[in-house]
Amino acid sequence: MSVVYQKSRGLTDVSTHYCPGCTHGIIHKLVAECLVELDILEKSIGVAPVGCAVLAYDYFNCDMQEAAHGRAPAVGTGIKRVQPDKFVFTYQGDGDLASIGSNEIVQVAHRGEKISTIFVNNAIYGMTGGQMAPTTLIGQKTTTCQDGRKEELAGKPIKISEMLATIDGAKYIARVSVDSPAHIRQAKKAIMRAFQTQLEGKGFSLVEVISSCPTNWGKSPVEALNWLRDNMIPYYPLGVYKDWEAE
C-alpha cells in the first residue's frame, strides 16, 4: 500500500492540547510542512509565545525556546544574532504580539531582524479564557467586554499587518486565513514566501493568520468559521501588504 498522505515530520508525535475546531493545528501543520519542504527543519529554532500556543515547543520537531509573554521577537533576535546561519521563527497569538508584545514586534521589524513571525489572530485571548484582545472586533462579546467591544472604551481593533508594512525593515508582510482549503493553500504559499525572505537575508517577515476560536467565541467549529468569514475577513482584508520582490 502506498502512502498518499502522512503527518509532516516537522511535527512531533505529541497530541496537541488545542480545542476541537481550533485552527492552530492547521497552522502548525503548514509551518511544519514549509520547514520540511525548504529543508531547514534541522537548522531551525522556533520561539513559542505565552498564550494558547505556549506548548508549541512540544509540537514542532525542531529546537525551541519558550519566551515570556510578548517577548518572542526579542528572544528570536538574541538567537539570530548568535546564529545568523540558522533559521529562526516566532509563533505568536494576538494577545502576545499585538498587546503586551507590540513594542517588541514593531522594533524587530524596525531593525530588519532576519527572523520570521507567524501571527495567529483569533480576536480574543484564548488561553486565559476569552478576554478582549486589541484585535477583538467592535461589538464582539468577550468576558471583559460582556456587552460587546465599544470603540469609545477600547478603541478600534488594531491592524498589525497594515502597521508593520509601513516599516522599512519589514520585507514581507501578508495576511491570510485558514477557513477554507483555498485559503489554506494561499496561507502556505505566504508562509513559504516569508521563510524564503529570511533565507535570502532580506529582513523581517510576518504572516498574519486569521484564525478561529470556537470555544471562547461560544460557537461550533463550523459556525466559528462562518463568523470568521462574515466578520473578521471584511475588517482584516487578506492579501500581501509588503513584498520585497515587488518593490
Partner: peptide, 12 residues
C-alpha cells in the same frame, strides 16, 4: 527586550 535577547542568546 534587552534581557529577553540575552535569554535567546544564552539559550543559543
Amino acid at each position: 527586550a534587552a534581557i529577553n535577547m540575552v535569554y535567546g542568546a544564552a539559550g543559543s
